[in-house]
Simulated scan of single mutants.
Amino acid sequence: MTVIDGDLIVTGALTAGNVFHTVVRVTPEPGVPTMVEVTGVTLRGRGTVRAQATAHTSVPGIRVVEVAVAALSPTGCQVWIHRTNSVETNVSVLMWREP
């Protein structure tokens, strides 16, 4: 494991063509994982597509049980959220692909 203490400097071929960010609004079913498709993405590159999701909530860990990204491809993904209630939730999704 590498620990970075301080500023992170990215070098190499990182461009707007291989980084994508969006916010999706999900209205979950209480107590059941709920999925929303993200489509229309065009990630360039040949490397593995990676992603990270973060739920925007004022009380993390209590009502949001888990948020995840699955079925990654250069053209989209699935965003999953599991909440204990049905409050509509914004989820930030960041996708990237190595050149």
Rank of each mutant, 00 (worst) to 15 (best):
M1Q: 14
T2I: 06
V3R: 12
G6V: 10
D7F: 05
I9R: 05
I9V: 05
V10M: 14
V10S: 11
A13Q: 14
L14K: 04
L14F: 03
A16R: 09
G17P: 11
V19R: 10
V19W: 00
V19P: 15
F20Q: 13
F20A: 06
H21M: 03
H21Q: 10
H21F: 13
V23S: 07
V23Q: 10
V26D: 03
V26A: 04
V26I: 15
P28C: 02
E29W: 13
P30K: 02
V32T: 14
P33T: 00
P33M: 06
T34A: 00
M35L: 12
V36Y: 07
V36R: 13
V36I: 12
V36W: 02
T39F: 05
G40K: 03
G40M: 02
T42A: 02
L43V: 13
L43S: 02
L43Q: 01
R44S: 05
G45L: 04
G45M: 04
G45P: 07
R46C: 00
R50P: 14
Q52H: 14
Q52W: 14
A53M: 08
T54R: 10
H56P: 12
P60Q: 07
G61N: 01
G61L: 11
I62D: 03
R63K: 03
V64C: 13
V65M: 03
V67P: 13
V67Y: 10
V67H: 03
A68L: 11
V69I: 07
A71M: 12
A71L: 12
S73M: 10
P74C: 00
P74L: 00
T75S: 14
G76T: 04
G76V: 03
C77F: 05
Q78L: 15
V79R: 15
V79T: 07
W80M: 12
H82S: 08
R83Y: 04
R83M: 09
T84W: 01
T84H: 10
N85G: 08
S86D: 15
V87N: 15
V87L: 12
V87F: 08
E88G: 10
E88Q: 14
E88D: 14
N90D: 11
V91L: 11
V91E: 06
S92I: 08
S92M: 03
L94Q: 09
L94F: 07
W96E: 07
R97D: 05
E98D: 09
P99I: 04
P99S: 08
P99N: 05
